[in-house]
């Protein structure tokens, strides 16, 4: 029996007249990497933001680690958030802080009685993991897009989350850096034993990192399954064009 980590049931979300998610259902099982694909504006990011309580659904439920997110009080929600790592599309590094301070930020606020030595050790360990120990004293503005992504991921890893949510991890990066990030996602999954949702419209990223694909079309999950099942034998014209466009483009 598979252990369900995230359970989305009949979830709907609208912004004004725009119905982004319509009765969406989705399960995420422990240890898997689920890739959610879809066009820009299809509601992929909205879905994962609901999972961490940054947005609230109009109806339905989002159950994460056995808890309905929208029902949680501030304290319980924060406790749940500590078990989830969220890598933002634009990295969301704090501009006014160095890389070290960025990494220390969640640490000093959430881990009690941590000595300076322990703090430094944890920061250095995570930075070494993403291969950017040399950037420890740099400001985010001095880093490249790929480096910022790595530091963003490192910042989420410092609290050793059980679930990782990646929002467009390869958006705006060159193909080589994209590959590095894809490998990093796999490395994180192996080392930290995380369960992940990867939001993307990059099929190479999906193929390399995902165990299972879910395609979001017009507010519903159209196709779910392994990459080959979803794309290579796609019947739905929208999924087929998505596949063709990605690989013809490359």
């Amino acid at each position: 029996m598979k252990d369900t980590v995230i359970e989305i049931k009949n979830l709907s979300k609208s912004f004004g007249d725009m119905h982004v998610l319509k009765n969406v259902n989705l399960d995420l099982y422990r240890g898997e990497n689920l890739v959610v694909l879809g066009k820009s504006g299809s509601g992929k990011s909205v879905l994962i933001k609901i999972m961490v309580g940054l947005l609230t659904q109009d109806s339905g439920s989002a159950i994460v680690l056995g808890q309905e997110v929208s029902q949680l009080k501030s304290k319980s929600l924060n406790e749940l958030r500590l078990k989830i790592g969220f890598s933002f599309q634009a990295s969301a590094l704090y501009d006014s802080m160095t890389v070290r301070e960025n990494l220390e930020f969640p640490l000093v606020r959430n881990v009690k009685n941590l000595s300076k030595g322990d703090k430094d050790k944890l920061v250095e360990e995570v930075l070494e993991g993403v291969g950017l120990i040399q950037a420890i004293n740099q400001m985010p503005s001095e880093l490249s897009g790929g480096q910022r992504k790595r530091i963003g991921i490192a910042r989420t890893l410092i609290l050793k989350p059980a679930i990782m949510l990646y929002d467009e991890p390869t958006a705006g990066l060159d193909p080589i850096t994209c590959m590095d990030i894809n490998n990093l996602i796999n490395q994180v999954n192996e080392e930290y034993k995380t369960t992940s949702i990867i939001i993307t419209h990059d099929l190479t990223c999906a193929k390399v990192t995902g165990d299972r694909m879910a395609v979001l079309l017009d507010g519903h999950f159209g196709n779910t399954g392994k990459f080959e099942e979803v794309f290579e034998h796609a019947v739905d014209g929208r999924v087929k064009s998505f596949y063709d466009y990605n690989f013809i483009e490359q």
Binding site: R81, F86, F88, A92, Y94, P106, R109, N110, R155
Partner: peptide, 8 residues
């Protein structure tokens, strides 16, 4: 949002 999801 990043601050919020890191429980701050």
């Amino acid at each position: 949002d990043a601050m919020e999801v890191s429980a701050t």
